[in-house]
Design a protein around this nucleic acid. Structure first.
Length: 628
DNA sequence: GTAGGGTTAG
């Protein structure tokens, strides 16, 4: 920890600057030294020189010192300088308010604003820019009348900052009103308005405003691409990114972060790799954001090796980087590695966050590490002072339920109330899932009744119980569930699998005939069936919802979306090459078995990403160890 | 001597 030279300030200020401590320097020279300082050590040395030369009360030098301290993230030193300054002027106040805003300390900034007024220091438009920067909606609303009263609301910067406050705060109507009545629009104000729409999921309004801009800059593109990436429109994000490249606009680190996230969501490894090489070929520095985005993309696209490579070469990893890698390990079934990295984080003095625990608890759940998982869950509060949220409970209930401790899991669901957490349909869904796995109809019925009685049932509730009945050949139960689903207007989310071939993503739903190569695809499905038969494989008809004839049930399984995607992969890629599939739902038992066999017969490595995790099928075995 | 818009993890 570096100390501020304040201790020295009082002692050396009583020493005249002409005691032979080096050549005397003009304030101008010192000012330019401050501006050009590269790090905190240099700045501290210059600060010491300022004091040595007797300029400790020089307003411009102190102002510059204060700004530089803030720019190095040293609000403490900046504030120390401020408090040692007699009668700070509007520059000083504005800049210290700005420093607080940069550290998300807006209320403290407002306190300083009140203090400056009580000392009769008149704020100006710059002060309000600083106050409103990144300010939350409520305090921003309180500042708004002050802006109007002092006549700064027509200033371009102040008005844009106001638009931004309302926009980010989700009051889009007020934001739009302020925006529409601006004396003059600027690219910045437009971008701020678009950000408001994009951040709150209104991509239609964001896009229509975006399309009106003739001269877009990178920030503007980034906002729009990022909006698509964040709100479930990854394909649109990638399309818009391609358009950005076509317009010769140079993407930057922020663009790549957004578009890599989009690639990760749809599992577009080839596109992700292309972007990675673009980054390398264009000499773009891989900072911590970009590095983490690359790790996230590679893990979600099935290449743990590439993710690890980035992780190991990334300097200054933060907790988010660790979390991405831990979740990556967990998704791929590398539970020992996930645990080791979690410990490694401690060694590197990175405090785990709530999300670190979600990653590691999921890892334990997927590997059946019950006692380790329980220990980690308990340590959250005792050791790390992090209160578990409903998601953490979800992980532990999943951990216990999967491992067969259904009653323990059920008790925990009921005990969540102790922490004032009400179990939600997702928690009950997790429990129901475990009931299906362990064929515990009794508990499942109890839960479903509770959910229906409390109006908490969703499509998943019915489907899970329906699957459970089906697995027990209880067709009356299945029919009852089907009737209930119809009655409540519930529809099953259709299964959809995608595969990327030659930079293009091909999507399939069950029984899909839309693909131009359908004939060949179904031909391949038949061929696969032949292999399966010769290996003595009989289809796992349990998993089919409908009580239909066995023959039809067999047909229905043949055309599950992942089978179509795999068949397409087999006919359109080189023999021996890996096949990567992304599925929106969880892979079913039959598809899991079939894929294992396909990997054995073809000698191909097949990687399937389902809703929960990755399955790496190699030579007839799956990396999940059939525990998923 | 000062100001407004964009980034990562489940």
């Amino acid at each position: 920890m570096l100390s501020t030279p304040f201790g020295a300030a009082t002692s050396s200020s009583i020493v005249p600057p002409t005691t032979g401590r080096g050549p005397s320097q003009s304030p101008e020279t010192l000012a330019s030294l401050i501006s050009s300082s590269k790090n905190i050590t240099q700045l501290l040395q210059i600060h010491a020189a300022v004091i040595r030369h007797g300029f400790h009360n020089h307003p411009v030098l102190n102002f510059k010192l204060q700004r530089s301290y803030s720019s190095f993230g040293r609000l403490d030193s900046s504030l120390a300088l401020f408090t040692h300054t007699h009668d700070p002027n509007v520059f000083f106040y504005t800049s210290i308010i700005h420093a607080h805003a940069a550290d998300n300390l807006h209320m403290r900034g407002i306190q300083l604003y009140i203090q400056m007024m009580s000392q009769d220091v008149e704020p100006n438009e710059f002060t309000f820019s600083a106050l409103l920067k990144g300010c939350p909606l409520e305090p921003g609303k309180l500042l708004h009348p002050h802006v109007i009263k002092l006549g700064f609301d027509c200033n371009m910067h102040v008005r844009t900052a106001l638009v931004d406050v309302y926009s980010r705060g989700g009051d889009l109507v007020s934001a739009r009103q302020l925006f529409d009545t601006m004396p003059e629009r600027s690219l910045v104000s437009l971008t701020s308005m678009i950000t408001g729409y994009a951040k709150h999921g209104d991509l239609i309004n964001a896009r229509s405003l975006f399309d009106t801009i003739a001269d877009k800059d990178a920030v503007c593109w980034n906002v729009m691409i990022g909006g698509y990436a964040k709100y479930g429109k990854p394909t649109d994000a990638i399309t818009l990114f391609r358009k950005m490249l076509q317009t010769k606009m140079n993407p930057n680190q922020v663009t790549f972060v957004a578009v890599l996230s989009a690639c990760g969501q749809i599992g577009a490894l080839e596109s992700g790799r292309w972007i990675h090489s673009y980054i390398q070929n264009n000499g773009i520095q891989i900072n911590i954001h970009l590095g983490t985005a690359l790790i996230d993309m590679y893990t979600k696209c099935g290449s743990l090796e590439d993710a690890l490579n980035i992780f190991n070469n990334l300097k200054n990893k933060d907790v988010i980087t660790y979390n991405a890698m831990i979740s990556g390990y967990s998704m791929h079934g590398y539970h020992q590695e996930a645990l080791l990295l979690f410990q490694d984080m401690h060694k590197n003095h990175k405090q785990p966050t709530a999300i670190s625990f979600i990653g590691i608890l999921n890892s334990c759940a997927h590997s059946g590490l019950v006692s380790i998982g329980k220990g980690i869950f308990l340590s959250m509060e005792t050791k790390h002072k992090i209160k578990p949220t409903i998601e953490h409970y979800g992980c532990v209930i999943n951990l216990l339920g999967r491992a067969g401790f259904l009653n323990h899991a059920y008790t925990l669901t009921n005990n969540m109330n102790i922490n004032n957490i009400k179990p939600d349909p997702i928690i009950f869904g997790t429990l129901l899932d475990s009931c299906t796995l362990h064929k515990n109809i009794e508990l499942a019925e109890k839960i479903v009744k509770f959910l229906i009685d409390h109006n908490l049932a969703n499509s998943g509730t019915y489907i899970l119980l329906s699957n459970l009945y089906a697995s027990a050949s209880n067709w009356a139960g299945v029919a009852r569930m089907r009737a209930l689903m119809k009655e409540h207007g519930v529809q099953k989310e259709p299964g959809c699998s995608s595969i990327e071939v030659n930079n293009k993503v091909h999507e399939f739903v069950a029984g899909d005939m839309k693909h131009p190569k359908s004939e060949e695809i179904y031909g391949m499905v038949e061929e696969v069936n032949g292999w399966l038969e010769s290996h003595g494989y009989s289809p796992q008809t349990d998993v089919v919802l409908q009580d239909i004839g066995k023959r039809e049930r067999v047909r229905s399984l043949e055309v599950h979306s992942e089978k179509l995607a795999i068949a397409f992969g087999l006919i359109s890629t080189k023999a021996g090459s890996s096949i990567k599939i992304v599925k929106n739902l969880r892979v079913c038992l039959d598809c899991h078995e079939v894929t294992k066999l396909i990997s054995k017969v073809t000698g191909r490595r097949i990687v399937v990403r389902d809703r929960n995790r990755f399955h790496h099928f190699v030579d007839g075995l799956c990396s999940c160890g059939d525990y998923w």
